[in-house]
Design a protein around this nucleic acid. Sequence first.
DNA 1: TGCAAAAGTTAGCATAGGCTAATAAATGCG
DNA 2: CGCATTTATTAGCCTATGCTAACTTTTGCA
Lengths: 148, 148
Amino acid sequence: MTDPKSTDARLTDPTSQAAGFDRMRQARQTEIAEDYVELIADLIAEEGEARAVDLAARFGVSHATVNKTLARLQREDLVQTRPYRSIFLTEAGAAMAEGARRRHQIVLEFLTVIGVPAETAAIDAEGIEHHVSEETLAVFERIARQGL
Amino acid sequence: MTDPKSTDARLTDPTSQAAGFDRMRQARQTEIAEDYVELIADLIAEEGEARAVDLAARFGVSHATVNKTLARLQREDLVQTRPYRSIFLTEAGAAMAEGARRRHQIVLEFLTVIGVPAETAAIDAEGIEHHVSEETLAVFERIARQGL
DNA sequence: TGCAAAAGTTAGCATAGGCTAATAAATGCG
DNA sequence: CGCATTTATTAGCCTATGCTAACTTTTGCA
Ligand SMILES: [Mn+2]
Ligand SMILES: [Mn+2]
Ligand SMILES: [Mn+2]
Ligand SMILES: [Mn+2]
């Protein structure tokens, strides 16, 4: 065993390290909601309405799963559904969708500008977008505009 | 209602869009495992051993939660635990830790180099690291080395 | 050395997000 | 128009991740 004190300091203090993990757990809680409202907004804008079957196809999950998640989002006042009718966003849902769309767009453009191939950028942006603070997003946005 | 056809095309085809969401769901499944093995490796390197109580403090969750997650990681042959003894990584766990550490490091340096303040970079890197493909990581690494 | 504090374990509970399968409603076409 | 296809709902099951509370084991110090 090597002397514990002689290794290079990789660990920060426990409390501030916990901040990063805390943010990650928060993101886990909101990322699915964000993707749902964003996709619902896009479907309404482009197709005229959002149906569970389209969400299922685009998310790549079963329609039963979509249904259950929509029930949760309705409980949280993000969407409004009625049996056998198409899906609508509440004001809160529309606001969240707008924020998600903006973040998604900036992350995607940023990745593309720094040289990530389009298809990879699209895939990675889908995950990264939920973990970018406003501060980091501002840096991304500046680079996306000005070029690398 | 506006004409659906007249809006700007924001949607890609359902199948390729599903790829991004699929990657995100995979990341959800592995991100906690990655953070655990990475932190266990760091604790062993710096403190000489990893104990559940330290993991709990650093992750900011209860020690009971840590215990349950460790049981899962043991089932998946990533860690080796014995009652009331400290925690060890298996070969597979050590390999995963090494990969996670590398990705984490590159993402953190990248964010710092492009101008994100250190504390924010540390927090955001904790989440972003799990959603960056090797292709994107290569771009990050080049920029982290060469400067912006 | 004995005992209190620290650490670990276990049980029980909750929520979220997956699935399949069975059922029901709506739609649309021959 | 009626019936087949499409779409939606619901139930039941599973795993993962969180919690608190009760209990046990270890450890370290007075
Ligand atoms: Mn996303
Ligand atoms: Mn998105
Ligand atoms: Mn992480
Ligand atoms: Mn990490």
